[in-house]
Amino acid sequence: MPLWDWSYAFSILPDLLLALVTTIEITVLGSVVALLLGLVIAVLRRARIPVLDQVLWAFVELVRSTPLLVQVFFLFFALPRFGIELSAFVIGVLALGVHYATYTSEVYRAGIDAVPQGQWEAATALSLPRSRVWTGVVLPQAIPRVLPALGNYVISMFKEVPLLLAIGVVEVVNEARELGSETFRYVEPYTIAGVLFLLLSYPASLLVRRLERRRVSA
C-alpha cells in the first residue's frame, strides 16, 4: 500500500471541504463576537468606573491566562447547569469569541491610548457629546491603526477552531479523524487538513503584513 493514495485523497476532499466551511463559519461568527465584545470592554475600561473596572480587569486577565480548551469545557459542562442548552457549535463560537475578545480589548485599548490627548481636548472644546467623541473622533483614528493586530487575531482564531473537536464540533480536523477511523488511513486526511489551513491562513497573514507595512510607511 502506498504511503500516499491520490484517489483516496481526492475521495475524501469534498467531505473535508464541507467541514472547512463549518470551520470558517465558526471563525467568522467568533470574530464578530470578539471584535464587538472587545470594543465594548475597551471603551468601558477607558471610563474607569470603580468596581466595574476591576471586575473587567480580572476577567480579562483570567481569560487570557488560562487555556481556551479549559474554557470550552467549562462552557460545555457549566451552562447546562443553569438550564442553558446550547449546541456545541454555538458554545464553540462563544468560547472563541469571548477568549479573543480579551485580546482584542487590549489591542483596541492600545489604539485608543495612541490617539493624542489633544484630540480629546479639541472634541471637548467643541462640546461634542461623549458618544460623538467616540464614534466621530477617537475610534475612527484608533481602529485603522490596530486593524493589522485585529487581523492577526482573526487568523489565530481560525487556527484554534480544531480545539472544538473536544466537544464534538465537526470541523476539519474532527472530520479528518472520522474519515481516518473509517479506513484506518490517517496520512491523507490529516495532511490535507494541514494543507487547507496553510492555504487559507498563509495568504491571509501575508495580507495582514502588507497592511502593517502600509500603516508603518503611511
Binding site: 480536523v173 479528518a176 490529516y190 496553510l198
Partner: peptide, 23 residues
C-alpha cells in the same frame, strides 16, 4: 517558520502523533 505558523497546532499534534508513525 511559515509552515508552523500557518497551520493549526491541533493538526500539527495529530500529524506528529498519528501520521508520522506511519511514515
Amino acid at each position: 517558520v511559515e509552515g508552523f505558523r500557518g497551520t493549526s497546532e491541533v493538526v500539527q499534534l495529530f500529524w506528529i502523533y498519528f501520521v508520522l508513525p506511519v511514515l
